[in-house]
Amino acid sequence: MEDIIVSVLFRTLVAGTPLLLATVGEVICERSGILNLGVEGVMAVGAVVAFMVTYNTGHPWVGVLAALIVGMIFSLIHSFASVTLQANQVVSGLALTMLGLGLSGMLGKPYVGKPLSIKMQNWEFPFLSDIPFVGEILFKQSPFFYLAVFLAFGAWFLLERTRLGIQIRSTGENPRATETQGINVSMVRHLCVIIGGGFSALAGAHLSISYSKSWIEGMTAGRGWIAIALTIFALWNPGRAIWASFLFGFIFVLQYLLQPLGISPNFLAILPYAATLIILLIISLKDHRKLNAPAMLAEPYKRGER
């Protein structure tokens, strides 16, 4: 029984890792006032780039770096359209997702059915991993897990405790007033979209070189969209994103846990998507003023306009 609990909790953290990375990225982006619906697409691009580079170089970390860089560059499309051209952010984000899924399908095609010889190895902390129960769950995880948790805390510190964080948040709340303080609103927003894209790409990299070691088309399976929902669930707070993501990680694991009971696997596959809706419903029953949504989310900002 204990073995099962350990394995379930272990896999919960594994499944929650990409969600956490993508959610934290989206939190940073939305806090600056830009809604980025391109997460799914950037994630897919990150997954394929990380896989291709790891496959060809044999170094998973080089793959991670490549995914990060490409993900950030790819996100420039959204930041250019939504910040510079003040385009509709919903449509621009959707375009990014379509393009990202397409590009990943094209780039990844030669790699279908070719697993990696070296995937990202899990880290095993000496002594710590020997602690019964806790050690087995927490200290034998993929480097992505530690990276995700570290970055989540880092993002929380950045947003809540630093000057730059205040600038990012006020950009999302009241860009006009922020601009009068001498802050370049457009620059802050560009930066946040690009950083958010980097996070999404890391999430994708986790899927293709750590979570599994082969690339298949559509392997992101809606996780990017779930991350956008988790951003709301986390009330735009990277700290809350941690447990929100791992709660969803558990729902992903629950599918496999319930399968032996003879429930249709397709019915179980509905679980994460239905849970997303249910959680948004619960959130909406709360007082809206406490939701903490950035006031100017998805509102294009035009300099000098009254």
Binding site: L96, M98, L99, G100, G102, L103, S104, E217
Partner: peptide
Amino acid sequence: GLPAATVEIVNGTLLVFLIMGDY
């Protein structure tokens, strides 16, 4: 001999440029 995703790329790219054209 192009992959099926080519169409998605064409569509996605055209949408990106349509949005930009609105500006």
